[in-house]
Amino acid sequence: MKGVLLVNLGSPASPNPEDVKPYLDEFLMDKYVIDVPFLLRALLVRGIILRKRPKESAHAYQQIWWDEGSPLIVLSERMHKKVTKKVDMPVALAMRYGSPSIESGMQELSDKGVTEVLLFPLYPQYAMASTLTILKLAEELQRKKFPHMKITDVPAFYDKPDYIKVLAKSIKTSLEGYDYDHLLFSYHGIPERHIRKTDITKSHCKINDTCCQTPSPAHKFCYRHQCYETTRLVVEELGLPEDKYSLTFQSRLSGDKWLEPYTDVEIDKMPAKGIKNLAVVTPAFVSDCLETLEEIAMRANEDFKENGGENFMAIPCLNDNDDWVAVVANWIKEWAHAETPVA
């Protein structure tokens, strides 16, 4: 019997520091997120970061928390329910960090008699700290606790035509009636070393425009290339002129070289360049979360206006958009009737 496991990032159980701390510990102690030796990671996370970050993060979560709970969890649950109604097989929902866990999702499917699982990381672009950590944990759980299960994963879908069309349509719909000067594509940031580590050729990635535009097997796992390719395809679909959009990376940590240009730095400069009406879309996420609702819709909005901007629009993620749900359901159906990978 076949079944599906949708996997998103996760969220603290509440926006209070006592719940945010264990969530951050699980997240930051992941060797695919902070990829340094365990003792150094523990010293960094538990000895330094977790002394202040839980209180700061809790305050940020409190700004965006809904009555129903964490926006990311609520939106993922809504999407999950809609997908379940469109496919004729069990569909479970899990989070890489926090609850419901990947193990509980696999157990739910196993209890229903599922032996073939389509593992669906809800990330359009491939990255160590998102896609890879989900795949590795699922593989480990399958080996140790669910040996009867066969797992097939959905590859990064950053350039798939039906995804691009849905994303472009969502952006176009949001922008109707909004006379914007510029559309910013803001992607979640990652350390540059992650790009080099996922370069299967061990030589292609130079982290410049040339390597991202030169065909290579490395692109299958290159987050930077995939972000630029998603942007290029959406821009092509929308027919945007070159001077009407740009691409940046957000959510960096200090102490490391992260992908540039930085979202906050570029947004602060825009009003002085004559950009008074800005729209921002965040295509690294399919569900609105802390990084989109607090970092972009609130903080970036405030900074933009403090620097002379007039109007700011944060375009919602795909969330439980019916067109997006239909695409996900179709990919699942394709997998159910074939032995080849979907998407």
Rank of each mutant, 00 (worst) to 15 (best):
L39Y: 13
F120T: 00
F285L: 03
D268V: 13
E103T: 10
K21H: 11
A279Y: 08
E56G: 05
T201P: 01
E339G: 15
K55N: 12
A156F: 05
S287V: 15
D153L: 07
V281P: 03
E339I: 02
S186P: 05
L318T: 04
I190R: 02
K55T: 13
V265Q: 14
Q107A: 12
S14Q: 05
P271C: 03
L318W: 04
K273W: 07
A279H: 00
L24A: 04
Q62G: 15
W324V: 01
T115W: 04
H59G: 09
D88H: 13
A129P: 03
L109Y: 10
L233C: 05
K136S: 13
A94V: 05
A58I: 02
Y97H: 10
A127Y: 00
E68I: 04
C289Q: 12
A314R: 06
V36W: 11
E68T: 12
A92T: 08
T133Y: 06
H182D: 08
V327H: 00
L132N: 10
M95E: 05
D268P: 02
A297C: 09
V154T: 13
V4D: 07
A42H: 13
P341Q: 08
R193E: 14
T115I: 13
E266S: 09
E291L: 06
V154P: 03
V33N: 07
L278V: 11
W66V: 04
V286Q: 09
S57W: 07
D67Q: 14
F312C: 00
R78D: 13
I190F: 04
A156Q: 07
I73M: 13
L290T: 01
L259M: 06
G255C: 01
C227K: 00
F221W: 13
T115H: 14
Y178C: 06
D30Q: 07
A338C: 06
A129T: 10
D88M: 09
K269D: 08
V280I: 11
D199R: 11
R51P: 06
K52R: 14
Q62I: 10
I275P: 00
L278C: 06
L184Q: 11
K112D: 02
N208H: 07
N208K: 10
D320Q: 08
T198V: 12
P215R: 07
L9S: 02
R232L: 01
S101V: 05
L44C: 00
K21R: 15
L119F: 06
L109H: 01
Y180W: 14
Y61P: 01
S11C: 11
W258C: 08
D181G: 09
E103L: 13
L318C: 04
D19Y: 02
V20K: 02
F304R: 03
C222A: 04
L135G: 03
L183C: 06
E237A: 13
E236G: 01
L278H: 05
L278E: 02
I48G: 08
E291R: 01
L122V: 04
T198Y: 00
E310S: 14
T231V: 11
E310L: 14
Q125E: 04
A127V: 09
D19G: 01
I267M: 10
G308E: 10
K202C: 10
P100A: 02
V36T: 11
T201C: 12
